[in-house]
Amino acid sequence: MGNTIEPAHPASEDSHITYRSGVAARLAGLSPETLRVWERRYNLTQVERSARGQRLYSAEQVRRLSLLKQLVDQGHAIGVLAPMSMDQLQELAGAAARQPKPQGPLRLGVIGANLARRIAGSGRDGLDLVVQQHWPALDQVALAPPDGDIEVLVIELSELHDSAMPLIVAAAQACGGAAVVVLYRFCASATIRALRAHGCLAARVPADIGELLLLCRSALAGERLPPVQAPSAPPELRFDEHALFTIMASGSGLKCECPRHLADLLLMVGSFERYSAQCASRNDEDAQLHNELGRAAGQARAILEVAMERLARTEGLPLPAGIAKGDAGKKTR
């Protein structure tokens, strides 16, 4: 009975046909589970309810769900689409339909110390991406302005704060009409909203280069619409991001991928540690909380670094210069 059309005909207010959620999902091409998740997270539609409390969707609401499904299948994020009006969704769908098929690899401008290396080392996954120009840091764009035809500017900042906004806007302006993708590991919601207001697509750092390609194509398709107290001294950093990416790129005699997984954990914990230390605090209590979070992350990082050093020594993986120099000093004594 759950998959039947239910005409809504209470005496005073029912001159239109409505559909139960299971039928609405099927008509829109969604699974009922996906529809429930979308409704719970994004409150997509103001639906009616039957006398027994079942959600009832109008034909117009089903058309909206179908359009959302179509755009999500094209690579757009449901979180960006959800607040948009029907007119905006139809305009975006029309723009995507008029968008010419991709011709050759995307030409990128990349800001970030490690992203260009990831793309270069990604093999087949990176064939559709070409790094036209690379800047290790945001403030270096002004020193070496873009000199190529960049289609997408990709900015990677592990901990993204409001203080980076002026530099991001300046970099985007320097790249002219390029679409802008900003990647982060930790970022406040207000900063993400500000990025979207400036026409940027903001997303977490993708796990693989294939996901990055989808993000870049989404940005080109038009998905750029808007809709403290200092912590105590953390344990000394022994493996910086460069050292961890070097280990991830090195071969290992292990059949498993423990070095890469452990390096990835250290990147995430280290990023959260720095984010907690820099996070804007609303009040003294909030500042104390971030201080405690930063200390806890620092302690976790220190434990994982000990494990990483042992793994690196056992497998003959490259050690950071500071640790290797310490070994040399011990041998001379």
Score class of each variant (00 low, 15 high):
E48G: 14
A51L: 14
R52I: 10
L56K: 05
S58W: 01
A59W: 09
A59D: 12
E60Y: 05
E60W: 01
Q61V: 07
Q61Y: 10
V62M: 08
V62F: 08
R64Q: 08
R64S: 09
R64C: 07
L65E: 00
L65Q: 00
S66Y: 05
K69L: 01
K69I: 01
K69N: 15
Q70A: 15
Q70P: 02
Q70L: 14
L71V: 08
V72I: 14
D73M: 06
Q74A: 13
Q74Y: 07
Q74W: 03
A77Y: 03
G79K: 04
A82I: 03
A82R: 06
M84F: 05
Q88S: 12
L89Q: 02
Q90G: 05
E91Q: 15
E91K: 14
E91V: 11
L92W: 04
A93T: 10
G94S: 11
G94T: 09
A96F: 07
A97S: 13
A97H: 09
R98C: 10
P100Q: 07
P100W: 06
P100G: 05
K101A: 15
K101L: 14
P105Y: 04
R107M: 11
L108E: 03
G109R: 00
I111D: 05
I111F: 02
I111V: 14
G112W: 02
L115F: 02
R117S: 10
R117K: 10
R117H: 11
I119E: 00
A120Q: 11
S122M: 01
R124L: 12
R124H: 13
R124S: 13
D125I: 02
G126E: 05
D128R: 13
L129S: 02
V131C: 09
V131E: 01
Q133W: 06
H134G: 03
W135V: 04
W135H: 04
P136W: 01
A137N: 10
L138H: 04
L138S: 04
D139S: 13
Q140F: 10
A142L: 10
A144E: 13
P145D: 00
P146H: 05
G148D: 14
D149Y: 09
D149H: 14
V154T: 01
V154M: 01
I155Y: 06
I155T: 09
E156Y: 03
L157Q: 15
E159W: 10
E159R: 12
E159P: 05
L160C: 05
H161A: 06
D162L: 13
D162W: 12
S163W: 12
S163A: 14
A164T: 07
M165V: 12
